[in-house]
């Protein structure tokens, strides 16, 4: 073999060869400062660019609110209008999730008071309020809800918020028209006190 003369022996080599060692000195504080600054920058970056880690936020949209704000539709779309009314009046108790608060405010999402054929009872509750014990989805609730008939002066707003509640968070019920809202409002004009659960249950669900 021609290569034979070139053979060398590792024994000799290894004896000379030393493995590298390690100096150990503390990491400069500056690096930790940079790391902290980077972490701060990262948080800020995620705050503005990560869309709140929401699964519905893609591409040019910055947040979930922005996506829902630009959904197509007329300015008089009852769902948009209703959402505005809901935000200013109903949200403090029933929450943006429509789930209410356990033990205090009953849920609207999936509620058996909401998901019925007509909005008659809902309209009356919103206009005059509700007091005394009430059963929602088989669970009893006590407490009182004031009437908002005066606060929601326009029939269109009233109908819109009912429509919004009846078609959000998985609820799928019929639309409430401004005419229905006007009719119920005129019927309950001189009532002046909140409804109770048995009274409402005696009424039909649909506006007549």
């Amino acid at each position: 073999m021609s290569a034979k003369p070139k053979k060398t022996v590792h024994k000799k080599k290894h004896a000379d060869e030393r493995e590298p060692g390690v100096h150990q000195e503390p990491v400069p504080v500056l690096l930790f400062v940079i790391l902290l600054l980077l972490a701060f920058w990262g948080m800020m970056y995620l705050h503005t660019n990560a869309g709140g880690f929401n699964r519905y936020v893609y591409g040019p949209f910055e947040s979930y609110a922005m996506v829902s704000d630009v959904q197509p539709g007329s300015s008089d779309d009852p769902m948009k209008r209703g959402a505005d009314v809901y935000k200013s009046i109903c949200l403090p108790c029933h929450q943006s999730s429509g789930l209410g608060a356990p033990g205090q405010f009953p849920p609207l999402a999936g509620s058996d008071w909401v998901n019925v054929e007509g909005p008659n009872r809902m309209l009356r509750i919103v206009i005059n309020g509700l007091s005394g014990p009430v059963e929602v989805n088989g669970q009893s609730w006590s407490g009182a809800m004031p009437g908002f008939g005066d606060l929601i002066a326009s029939d269109e707003d009233l109908a819109a918020v009912i429509t919004y509640v009846r078609n959000s968070w998985g609820n799928e019920a019929s639309v409430c028209t401004p005419e229905e809202a006007a009719l119920v409002r005129s019927e309950s004009a001189d009532r002046g006190r909140p409804w109770s659960s048995p009274e409402l249950l005696n009424l039909s669900v649909e506006v007549q």
């Binding site: 040019p60 197509p72 007329s74 300015s75 008089d76």
Partner: peptide, 20 residues
């Protein structure tokens, strides 16, 4: 513009168009 037309009886819609 939506604010402009509020309570005028006229109704406007904003139609979104993606760009890129």
């Amino acid at each position: 513009i939506a604010f402009l037309f509020k309570d005028s009886g006229g109704k406007v819609a904003a139609n979104i168009r993606p760009t890129g």
